Amino acid sequence: MKVGLSYKITSNLSVEIKELELTDIGSEPDVIAYLNDTDECDSLVYLRVNDEITIHCFLNCSSFEVNDLTVFCSEETRTIFIGGKKKSFTINMNTCQISNEFEHCLFWDFNILSNGLILETGELDCLLRDRNGTILSHAPVDPPYEIFDEEDGIRFNSIVHGTTYLKYPSEKILEA
């Protein structure tokens, strides 16, 4: 059932995206991913990145009014970041392997920080990732929360969790 997908794409690479009927799988994709439990999925999203990798994402689009799917592509590491609904993960474009999965209460967004790291925000969890998608740091949060970019990391202030941090790695790690 097509339900009117909402999505956000951040990439210098070519990304084609379209919603398909669950029965319109067509040719075999390079990657199959689930953003919800398999029995909750009511939508199929076709992604084609740089005319070289095809991804089928299954998700439930009928339950929320935020972006159903967020895609960020890191050209220099050939890594695709995908987040939506209850999950986030990365796909290595060279191997077509899913890795660095994280289960969210509700995924919100990927944001590119000035130091090149990726801030991943969610309803109850925020993550700091490198450009390969490796999770460097995790902080519990609870909305509403404020975000402050500081010299040594990201600080969050929330009513329930108080002050929590995502610490930036040392410079040696960033250069690797």
Rank of each mutant, 00 (worst) to 15 (best):
S11I: 00
D130Q: 03
N94S: 09
L106S: 13
I32G: 06
T134I: 11
I135A: 02
Y34N: 04
D42Q: 08
I91D: 02
C105H: 13
D51S: 12
H161R: 09
E52C: 11
A33E: 01
V141T: 02
D130R: 01
H56P: 06
M1R: 14
S74T: 00
L128V: 04
E146L: 09
F110C: 04
K167L: 05
G116F: 00
V141E: 01
D30K: 06
F110R: 03
N12A: 03
F156K: 02
G153C: 03
V160N: 10
K2A: 12
I159Q: 08
L47V: 12
I55G: 09
S170M: 08
K2E: 13
S62M: 15
D109R: 10
G83E: 07
I55H: 10
C126E: 02
R131T: 10
R155H: 04
I135N: 05
L117A: 00
N67L: 12
L47G: 08
S11C: 05
I98Q: 02
C105V: 13
E19D: 01
N60R: 11
D24S: 13
T70A: 11
A139H: 00
E65G: 12
M1L: 15
S14T: 09
S88R: 00
L166W: 00
I53M: 04
T54V: 15
L5S: 07
F102C: 10
H161K: 09
I17S: 01
V66A: 14
M1H: 13
I118V: 07
S11E: 04
G153S: 03
S114T: 15
G4M: 02
